[in-house]
Simulated assay, not measured.
Amino acid sequence: MEIFTLKEYLNPKLKKIWSNYYSYDNPIAPMFPESVVKNEVLFLSLNPSLPPFVKDVENGFTQSNPWRFLNSRISYEENESVPHFKKFFKIQKEISENWTFLDLLYLRKSKQLDIENSYKAENERNFILEQAKLTLDLIAEIKPKLVIVANSFTEKIIHDKKQTIFNFNASLDNDFVYRYENIPFITRESKFLGSRFWDSEKNKDRYENMINEVQRVLKIVNKTRP
Rank of each mutant, 00 (worst) to 15 (best):
L129M: 10
I148F: 00
Y119W: 07
N126E: 06
N59S: 12
F85R: 01
N117Q: 14
P83L: 13
K156T: 13
F101D: 04
E130F: 04
N123H: 13
V149C: 09
F69M: 12
T62N: 08
Q112P: 02
I91H: 01
Q131L: 06
A150S: 15
K156Y: 07
I74N: 10
K87S: 05
P66T: 13
E77W: 01
S72V: 00
Y106R: 12
K87I: 12
L104A: 04
K87T: 07
S81M: 03
F101Q: 04
W67E: 13
R73I: 00
E80Y: 10
L136D: 05
T135D: 06
Q92V: 05
F127L: 15
F101P: 02
K111P: 03
E58M: 10
K87E: 08
E116Y: 00
E58A: 11
L134P: 03
N65D: 09
E97R: 11
T100M: 08
R125F: 01
A150W: 03
N59I: 12
E124L: 15
K87M: 12
F153M: 07
N79M: 04
Y106S: 14
F127A: 12
S81E: 13
A121G: 00
K143T: 14
E116L: 04
L105G: 02
S72I: 01
P83S: 14
K109Q: 10
R125C: 01
Q63P: 00
L129A: 11
F89T: 11
S152P: 05
S110L: 14
I157W: 00
L136S: 02
L146N: 04
V147H: 02
N79K: 06
F69A: 05
A132G: 09
S64L: 09
N79A: 04
N65K: 14
S75A: 08
N151M: 04
K120Q: 14
F127Q: 12
E155C: 10
R73K: 15
F101H: 09
R73A: 08
E124W: 06
V147M: 01
S81Y: 12
K90C: 04
I139A: 07
E122P: 08
E78W: 05
S152H: 08
E94G: 01
N98C: 00
S75T: 15
Y119I: 15
Y119V: 14
V149L: 03
Y76Q: 02
S64Q: 09
K133E: 12
Y106N: 14
F127C: 07
L105M: 07
I142N: 08
Q112N: 10
K156F: 03
Y119L: 13
Y76D: 02
F153N: 11
F88A: 03
K145G: 06
R108M: 02
Q112F: 00
L70K: 10
E94S: 11
N65L: 08
P83R: 10
L136K: 03
K90Y: 07
I157L: 05
S152A: 14
D103A: 06
T135C: 06
K93Q: 13
Y119T: 15
E94I: 09
